[in-house]
Amino acid sequence: MVTEVESLIYKIKERTGIDISLYGEKAFFTTKENYLPILKQFDFEDFLVDEELNKLYFKVEYKGVKFVAEIDGGEKEKVVAELILSVFENSYVKPNEFSEEAFLKTALEGETTKIQLQKYIKRKNIPPYRCFCLVALLGNHKVSDVLEILENYSSKGKDISLVLGEDFIVQVKFLDETASSVYQSPTEYAESLLKSVENELGYPIDVAVGAEVSSFLEVSTSYKQALSAMRMQENLEIKGEVYSFKGMFLSKILEEMPKHKIEEYIRTLVDDNAKTIFTDSEMILTAEEFLKNDLNFSETSRKLYLHRNTLVYRLDKIQKATGLDIRKFSDAVTFRLITLLYKTIY
């Protein structure tokens, strides 16, 4: 195979005059004479431009083995790189067992190249709309029943539903005109679906959604976000009807912070006085309900059955102890961050 790849880049050089170098996991091939590898950074998305050295790097695949390709040039040479990518793509016959489902799975996981995705979009007539991913964990419930309900929520021939494993369904929802006019957000769509399943089938399922992306080309981003939201709700025991990546974004950032750093922040932000608030379940419930109701006094006091004045009194107490007036948006954000820091640590 080594010789096949080498002969491929020599063939390209022969016909186009373009020098190509390939960085593999354990090998390096180049059409240049006496040329040694110079690339250090392998972690990048589709392209990497090194303006200083006038090099353009991009990812290619040959018979399932991944390489980083290097050519001379910068931004302008990306077209050339696309052509080389296409040559690599078409240089061998792919095995037939790569079914559509398997392809979609690799696409969701971000394991396909942009060109492979573009080809799929063209072949399957995938609509050019914005889209997002929804993942559903069904527990012991019947996949076919939930799929039937999912189909009812789909725009015919547009949305893609995929069964991945015994109890795991993914849907790529395209936001055509109908969907955009009916649902304000992926979360609202997912809530409707969840309620329909509970209503029609009589059992609960876990549903998570990723954020909207501009087209099917970026579907893996939304899919990974949906998976991440599902995982986070399990770890953080966040209660909610639908788990959305956007809703858990703050938790995600905090989760990735080193524990000692979080403890340091808590020490700085929460003195003994403030601690009385953050360890008082009644105060925390009041504050969280106030934030949940968009800092709305009437709605919060109604939901908590508090006299409006009692609510004001408690918010004053919170302000006195923490220095944060959560009636103000900026202080409310800080308060939310501290409560999440607490949840992450304790």
Partner: peptide, 29 residues
């Protein structure tokens, strides 16, 4: 099983199927 309890639920979220007529929405279950 929930489906065998002969119970029907109505939520805050209407959860109607947007592509179906009202008739079909009511008939689906």
């Amino acid at each position: 099983e929930p489906k065998d309890r002969d119970i029907a639920m109505v939520f805050q979220n209407y959860a109607l199927y947007p592509h179906m007529s009202i008739y079909d929405n009511m008939a689906f279950g």
